[in-house]
Design a protein around this nucleic acid. Structure first.
Ligand SMILES: [Zn+2]
Ligand SMILES: [Zn+2]
Ligand SMILES: [Zn+2]
Ligand SMILES: [Zn+2]
Lengths: 149, 149
DNA sequence: AGCAATTGCGTTATGCTATAACATATGGCA
DNA sequence: TGCCATATGTTATAGCATAACGCAATTGCT
């Protein structure tokens, strides 16, 4: 069940940065926000992220090359397959799981005798708020802070 | 329906390289295999890939940062959500779609009023052949040619 | 044919993402 | 005390992707 073994200072800082941001951040964006705390090199961020990813407190979004704090520091223990919906406009992320989706993937894997180790389930698009704003002619937020140093 | 407008020389070379490889290749791996054909710069590969991705002849696997030829140059027109299973050991890729998986994602999107634009559905693990080989004590193939120049 | 617009191509330079390798420090424990 | 494991700091390097420029080929029109 991956007992959380109390976070170190760097891990706490990185997790705090992601939580406060409320949206996905690239490792380098995290680094920039932690320079005042003494961070100097990407490795300090990546090493902290490694541990946070292991314990499930943070997720990596492959489609964005960015990291996000787990929205329900729930039990990721239950083997649950987690999916993410990412708004291209406001960068908000919805983390959800659906037992039926999981069941279908498992069915495919069983039929093919494939042993699943990791999953990447991400859908990107426009959230309700952004679509409403767009319909009303408003510009909207700039997007996720990734690829922007 | 994205009429395929006849491929250019570079696009043909890149698609041929991916098809012949039969496994995912990074853009730089493709570049290396096309130097004898006159390729010099990553952009030549990326520009060809852009078009091939548009027309659905090639897919990008975010979890691998690599590209793979579509295994059934089928109609990707029908809005079908495509999923990939990737063997971590032999790098083979299974491309499949499941209307029930798609239906569940669509149901979530409709409930949240989220407009889906793109999907990344990838599961990685071990294929049947590699598991059997591992059980028999054999080493197996080295893995996908990504991150190796 | 003449001409403009589009698209593809080649090249150079640069930026973003991630890890290797080495050094130092710290804390638990035999 | 001496050993081991883990965290950390630092420098350098590898791997992935695009910006910006200029030129060439193609297309579509008059
Ligand atoms: Zn989570
Ligand atoms: Zn939004
Ligand atoms: Zn396909
Ligand atoms: Zn395999």
């Amino acid at each position: 069940m991956t007992q959380t073994p109390a976070l170190t200072r760097n891990q706490t800082l990185v997790l705090g940065t992601l939580t406060k941001a409320g949206e996905p951040l690239s490792a380098y964006a995290i680094l920039d926000r932690l320079r005042e705390e003494g961070f100097r090199a990407p490795l300090q961020v990546y090493r902290a992220l490694d541990k946070l990813l292991e314990t499930g407190l943070v997720h990596r979004l492959d489609s964005l090359k960015a990291f996000v704090a787990c929205s329900h520091p729930h039990e990721h223990a239950g083997e649950t397959m987690v999916a993410f919906a990412i708004c291209e406009n406001c960068a908000r992320v919805w983390e959800f799981s659906d037992s039926k989706i999981e069941a279908r993937f498992s069915a495919w894997a069983e039929a093919e005798d494939f042993e699943t180790r990791a999953t990447t389930l991400e859908i990107s698009g426009l959230c309700a708020a952004c679509r409403a704003a767009a319909a009303a002619g408003k510009p909207g937020k700039p997007g996720p802070e990734t690829s922007r140093r």
